[in-house]
Structures are given as C-alpha cells and as structure tokens.
Design a protein around this nucleic acid. Structure first.
Length: 503
RNA sequence: UCCUCGGUAGCUCAAUGGUAGAGCGUCUGGCUGUUAACCAGAAUGUUGUAGGUUCGAGCCCUACCCGAGGAGCCA
C-alpha cells in the first residue's frame, strides 16, 4: 500500500474546490454499482460525499466494484457541482487506492436494535447521526467554556477521588484506595467553593459519577457537568449566568450546526424560541400552577393532542396496510412492512405515554407542598413554557445541606433549578451556599452528618466567609435537549449505563 | 429494589401446539445516473439457559440469565 498524495482535502471544504482536482481520504459508507458506473458514498471526519467512477477508468472501476462498507480509501478526482448528488457536489474519480479492506462490517445501512448498536458503539460512532451529535456536543462544551472564560472565570480542576462520608453516600461508587475506601466524585462543588474564595469566579468541568440504579432515558452512571461558583452571587446572578450560558450554547449550535441539526431531524424553531428572560417561578408558585385550572386544561389539551396523534397514526397504519395488501413486489412489501413496524412502534410508545400520563396526572394535580418534583411534575411544568423554566426556593428538607436558608421563609432554601423546555427536565441545579458557620453546622446536625470530614469545608466559613453560590449543568441532558434526542445514551461517546460496560 | 414488555439466521422481524420463513447483508451473474438503487440465482439456525407438560413445544408452565421502557433518585 502506498498513498497517492501527501496532502488531502476534507469533505466539508469541497464546495470551495469545484473544478479542481483533489485528494480525499476516508471510508466507504455505501456503494451502488451498475455495469458501467459505480457510485461510492465516501465519508471522512467532516461529512459525506458521493464519488463516481466510470468503467472508462478500468483500474479504479475494478477497485470500486470490489470495495466493502467501511473500507478505508484514498481517492483523487475532480470536484463538480451536481444536483443529483446528495451533498450537491460530486467527485469524478481518476485514481483510487484501497488503504484497508473491511471484511463484514457489522452495522449495515438498515435499521438496528438498541442492544446491537450499543454492543457496537465503537463502530456506531461512524454513523452520520452519531457524528452529528458528537460535533454538536463538542460545540456545546466549547461554548460553555467560552462563556465562562469570556466572563472572567478561571477553570479549576477538582479531584475525581474524594474521601468517604460525603452527602448521599449511598449513591457513590466506592474505590479501593490503597486499602482505604474512597469514592468517585459526584460533584466538584465543595472543592470549587475553596477556589472561589481564592479566585472569586471559577468553574470546573469534569466527569461525575452516580451509583444510582436508574434505568431511564435521562440517566447515566458517568456523566459530565460544568459547574460555576461565584463570589458575592445572589440568585439573580445565578439566573443571569444560567441564561447567558444557555443562550451561548444554543446560539453557537445554531450558527455552526444547521446541517447536523437537519441530520438529526431537530425542530430548530423550538431552539430559536429561546430568548431571555427565561420563565421563572418560585417553588410555591410552581405547586400552585400544578394545582391550577390552567394546568388541568393543559393536561386535557395535551392528552387530546396525543389522542389525535394516535388517530393519525392509526389512519396511516390502515393506509399502509392497504398498500401492503396491494403490493406485489417483494422489496416493496418489505419496505411497507418496515414502515408498518415503525408506525406500530410509534403507536405503542404513544399508548404507553398516554397510559402513563393518565395514571400520573392525578398525582401531579394533587401534589403536596414540601415534596421534591419528580419527572412528571417537571415535564408538566416545563412544557407549558417556550423558554427554559427556573424554579426557585425549594423546601429545605428535600435539598442539600450546603444550600443557604431563606431568612424570609426558613422552610425554604435559596436555590434554583432550570428545567429545559419540551419535557427534557432538569438541566441545571444550583443554589446560594450557606455561608454562616453556625447555620451550616446546625443543618449538618439535623442531617446527622459527621462534621469531621468537612472541617476543611467549614474552614471556608471561618476565614473571611462571603455570600456565594453556583450551579451545575449536565452536559448530556443539554446535548439531548439541543439535539432533540430521546435518550442520553447517544449524547456521549461511550455511555456508562446500569448493566452496560462494553465496549 | 419494584412494575411492564421482549430474547427466532450476521441484522430487522414473521411463524393456530403439527415440515423454522421473509427482507436486508454476504457470494455469483446482469444493468450507464444511482439516492437505504434494481433484476435473477445461491448459502444461512443448539429459536437466551435449564427443567417440566404433551404423541408433538419457537409457541404452554417453572426458575434463572440478558436487554428495553418506567418508578424511586437525580444532572
């Protein structure tokens, strides 16, 4: 094997190269051949391009005919605009080199099940949909870091291994640390508060580990979180930064990833509707809203919309069924059966959704003050707004010990969660921290916490304590929201889920 | 931990308790513009595991394993 050329062009740059001869390095995504012409669908790290070889070029044509899916290739040819090509440009191949022949690539260009794809995650990453998500994830992280960097924050790397006896210890992963049991970090916050007292505006960005046995579309056992911590912050400061951060992430995605969002089938208008100020309710107002006629009506309308949707799908099922009965060609039948399966799947999901909402709407309407919101409450609240929704001032019993007590109503803490629209749930959780030593110790006693492992944390309240606060934004839930994904497993290259550790 | 659904060819799925099948992928041949191309032909199985019921089990029963969705908890 030898490579034809030392320099190569990337597919994303092809539109500027019309009329020129270029060299492309990539992989064969798909292929169609006939007797005198071969269409190669070639991908590289930046996109997909259709390339053609005619039989008048016997050497490359022979290679093209024998290529298998995901074989790595290098090709040289002339770029030209062609409306018949999926990307609008096409390459006429003059030379083609096989770099490596892939034998029996397991992921075909047909539909696959979740289990199969997850077991082949290392290869699934090559799919157009997955590369689109990973590119957007990159931009979201870059935007988030850019936002804080531009606002004068300093990045602080907090430890991943932390000593025992942290709050909520049941949800931590234990690690054997030279015979001592320590835990994987579930937040960088306490350490970040130390750095906040040194540098005032700081943030950390790193992996976070939760050992909860959650099996839902919103949970990973290992996920990434970006957490700012701000000296002299009040709740409005936190909301201001949460808004700025969110707008920057959405803006950068809309600026750079229109094509990727289209690949994902994302409804871009929902993202464009996000403007400041975001909707904001206190916890008590949110509970009132849950109990209101407005919510009751909204639930009814939502159920009616789902019923309508189900009727539409049933109608589509009937039409497809008739087409299937009339179809004679085997491949046509197969396609219709595939459509039928997809429609049935959608209908089943809808039916489950409907059932779920019917059984839970009563719980939501009779939600009692003092509990934490569950997924259903969050969904019903957030879907009534086009922007993300802040909920502030939760009952202190359901929140962490470090959150500042609200002196105007001691039942509450000064905190804020941000719920993403379209039912994506909580993407940000944050609070003003309790900076008064006595109040913090009192709260720790109430929680029956051993203060010894926290003496260093209490020191922050002994030496120049100041009002401060911060929040954490979950990257994967944000990616899911911005990309319009049903499940967080596609938002991270190698998701760690309950019962899943391969690859 | 609990609830619901599922496990049949490499993949996606069919199969009244009665001879295990289709499409895709693969291989062979054909086709000058395809868009998950198409046409013709070929190969393909320990039906998740272990028991049980039955003349006969992919299908029924029991236990277990694995997966999916959800609850709780959370970002």
């Amino acid at each position: 094997m030898h490579l034809v050329s030392m320099t190569s062009t990337r597919i994303v740059e092809l539109k500027q190269q019309c009329g020129n001869s270029v060299t492309l390095r990539g992989w064969l995504h798909g292929k169609r051949t006939s007797g005198k012409i071969a269409f190669l669908i070639v991908r590289d790290g930046t996109g997909i391009c259709q390339c053609i070889v005619e039989a008048s070029h016997p050497e490359p044509f022979a290679i093209a005919e024998s290529l298998t899916q995901e074989s790595s290739i290098e090709l040289t040819g002339t770029v030209r605009e062609d409306a018949r090509s999926p990307g609008g440009v096409e390459i006429d191949i003059s030379a083609l080199t096989l770099v490596h022949r892939a034998e029996d690539y397991p992921i075909s260009r047909k539909s696959h099940g979740v289990d199969f794809l997850m077991n082949h995650r290392h290869l699934w990453l090559r799919a157009p949909r997955q590369t689109a998500i990973l590119r957007i994830r990159h931009t979201l992280i870059k935007a988030a870091r850019g936002y804080f960097d531009d606002a004068g924050f300093t990045l602080i790397d907090t430890p991943i291994l932390s000593p025992g006896a942290a709050e909520g210890a049941g949800t931590l992963f234990p690690v054997d640390y030279f015979g001592e049991e320590v835990y994987l970090a579930q937040t960088g916050q306490l350490y970040l508060e130390s750095a906040c007292m040194a540098l005032e505006k700081v943030y950390c960005f790193g992996p976070t580990f939760r050992a909860e046995k959650s099996k839902t579309r919103r949970h990973l056992t290992e996920f990434w979180m970006i957490e700012p911590e701000i000296a002299y912050a009040d709740l409005d400061t936190l909301k201001h930064h949460a808004e700025g951060l969110t707008l920057r992430m959405i803006g950068d995605t809309l600026t750079h990833h229109r094509d990727d969002l289209a690949t994902l089938g994302r409804d871009v208008s929902a993202l464009e509707k996000v403007t400041v100020p975001f909707a904001s309710l206190t916890y008590s107002e949110a509970v009132d809203l849950l109990h209101s006629a407005q919510t009751r009506d909204w639930i009814e309308q939502d159920l009616a919309a789902l019923e309508t949707r189900r009727a539409e799908i049933d109608a589509a099922l009937a039409v497809t069924g008739e087409e299937l009965a009339a179809a004679t060609k085997a491949w046509k039948k197969e396609k219709l059966e595939q459509t039928l399966r997809e429609l049935k799947e959608t209908r089943d999901e809808l039916a489950i959704d409907l059932e779920h909402r019917r059984t839970h709407q009563q719980d939501v309407l009779s939600f009692s003050w003092g509990k934490d919101f569950g997924g259903d409450e969050e969904t019903i609240l957030s879907r009534q707004f086009d922007t993300p929704l802040f909920v502030t001032g939760y009952p202190r019993e359901v929140k962490a010990f470090y959150m500042k007590r609200d002196d105007t109503d001691p039942r509450l803490v000064v905190n804020m969660d941000m719920l993403a629209p379209e039912g994506y749930g909580e993407v940000i959780g944050g609070s003003i921290r309790e900076e008064r030593l006595e109040v913090l110790q009192e709260r720790m006693n109430e929680e029956k916490m051993d203060s010894a492992p926290y003496e260093w944390y209490l020191d922050l309240r002994r030496y120049g304590s100041i009002p401060h606060g911060g929040f954490g934004l979950g990257i994967e839930r944000t990616v899911a929201w911005i990309c319009g994904l049903k499940h967080v497993r596609e938002t991270i290259p190698f998701p760690r889920l309950l019962g899943r550790m391969y690859p």
